[in-house]
Nucleic acid binder design. Structure first.
Lengths: 188, 188, 188, 188
DNA sequence: GATGAATGAGAGTTCATTCAT
DNA sequence: CATGAATGAACTCTCATTCAT
């Protein structure tokens, strides 16, 4: 018999991501995903309980990949760590536009389970820690951490579409600008 | 002969806004809107060409109402004008949570036509003008205006959910903080 | 080389019978049968051509087991033979509720082939013979034999659900009553 | 607008009954019912919540029509009332073979709700009353009423297929025989 | 203009059966 | 022979839109 193939699950997730770029989350159909993944419709259900579960899984996967790239704490001094995160954020946006589009569309959808939201929230902890360190060192404004995070991620997220089509020679400039704005906004 | 009744169109738009709060944009059905508006399903098609047109119209209407409140240029000095806009943004968010929810859900949907996006963009002109004045006066960083706008509206939009349930006595504080962060981010 | 294993076929038949008790004939899926039997879905197709053939085989098997128990002619005098059959019918119903449920659900289903129906009919021959002997001896009403059989099996079958949950001390009484009614109905 | 048309509901019920004759309960599809009824699939759902509700409604309707014809108490003396019921049962079977087929197939299906079963049970009350009167008058055997009812309806139901194709000149004979057997079975 | 029953394309999902391993 | 992943036709049901009244 054919063994359940995790590669195939990855193919399906990838096909879902690609299909959302083309037709949007609202226009997504399982049949189109299957066609794009090169499998039968029924096969999707071997790997994912239903459409919701597929999208939830893709969201979790995408968010975790994103968080792993952007939110790493490498023990740098505060300002440097902050800047590095901001730059990582921007460069991830530029190089993974499709994932950003997907995450944005999912954020306000009913597909994401509470459990996934909770798990995703954990990935942000390095950023939370960084902000709190900054407040303790009185380098940052003494505001609510959740508040600051929302401000930052909203601002950065809104820049994603602008970052998308950027020529390579302006990317460094873009990163620097974004990092600077974020820092100036929060610094004490 | 009964004339098309603009009051009825308003009822339908309002019902649509309310229904989206409850079931989300993805769960919105014309029949539910009709029921909530107290009209027959067919009647909706007298006032709006189809579902897309209804949502597009509501989006345009909501955005324009929002822009009219927030983006007014009253000839104040730069910093004062900037602060006033930020505060107006926050207070609008707090008092019109349902519209914010709707605008957020629509922003990345296929329902909004390019024409509407263009029209909506016009409403932002006072803010554009303000930012360009600030750059000319060298009070703001010399960045691309569209870039700055995206940054600001992303940041403010992300604060909306946090602003929503805020007790009255913390709203002034919230407004001041938001205005300060935005200013510090952009100031030269 | 492993041979086809008749034990495994029995397991599958048994699992089918059990599964029907739980989900009904309409809710029966091959996968559930396989799971219950502890084999792979594909294995079922080694022993039975398809779902219809599996159910047909189980029906035939169940009917024949039932007939072997109930319809035996042991050369008793007519009334005694008749009573014995009726009692055997009832006691079989009580002790093999699951098979009765299955036979009832199958009786009006499209799964049973004409061939099986014909074969099953043969099992009833001792009862046919008994009734014809009764008619010849003028102890029974001179009605069509098939007619009498239908009457009897319908009546007895309808009592099955009532017999099912009966406490042990009422079973003898139940058997006597059933036998008496059947006899009174048919006797000349 | 078109008013909801109870005639159409009747058409759909009739189409369902007819379709079951051809493909069986297990093979019944909503689309086939719609085609036979001459309406669109969606229209079925204007009149019935879903497939289960359609079948449940048809079952209830069929059972009640049947009960109204067969179980009427017209104050006849016991034996005459009994005989009349038995004959009515048989003649109904002969003239409404399709309904009998449907009722038989539904009886052991998961489609029938408990509520419908309870309502259907009420239709049998005249028969219950008759049997109890017979026991009080000591004309019938002193058995449990539910038990007697099961016996009778099982016996009669089993005769249905035999009654179906009967030439007109044998129907009276068939009715008499059935009534006699039932009476002899239960009489004290 | 208003109504809401009617339409039917298209959605998600199941499941008997096949077949590569 | 045994496995269970893969298949895809077929199912029920929804809902944007139309149209007879």
């Amino acid at each position: 018999m054919r063994q359940k193939d995790e590669t195939k699950a990855q193919h399906i997730l990838r096909a879902t991501l690609d299909e959302v770029q083309v037709v949007g989350l609202a226009g997504l159909s399982i049949e189109a995903v299957a066609r794009r993944a090169g499998v039968a419709t029924g096969t999707i259900y071997t790997y994912f309980r239903n459409k919701d579960a597929l999208l939830d899984a893709l969201y979790l996967h995408t968010k975790q990949k994103f968080a792993a790239f952007v939110f790493s704490d490498e023990g740098l001094p505060l300002r440097a760590a902050f800047t590095q995160m901001a730059k990582a954020y921007v460069s991830y946006m530029i190089e993974n536009k499709d994932e950003m589009v997907f995450m944005t569309q999912m954020a306000n959808s009913p597909y994401v389970t509470d459990e996934t939201r909770a798990t995703v929230a954990l990935g942000v902890r390095p950023a939370t820690a960084l902000l709190e360190r900054g407040k303790a060192e009185q380098l940052l404004k003494p505001l609510d951490t959740a508040w600051m995070l929302a401000f930052l991620s909203g601002a950065m997220g809104a820049l994603a579409p602008l970052a998308a089509g950027l020529p390579a020679d302006q990317q460094a400039e873009f990163q620097d600008a974004a990092a600077l704005l974020c820092w100036d906004a929060l610094k004490a």
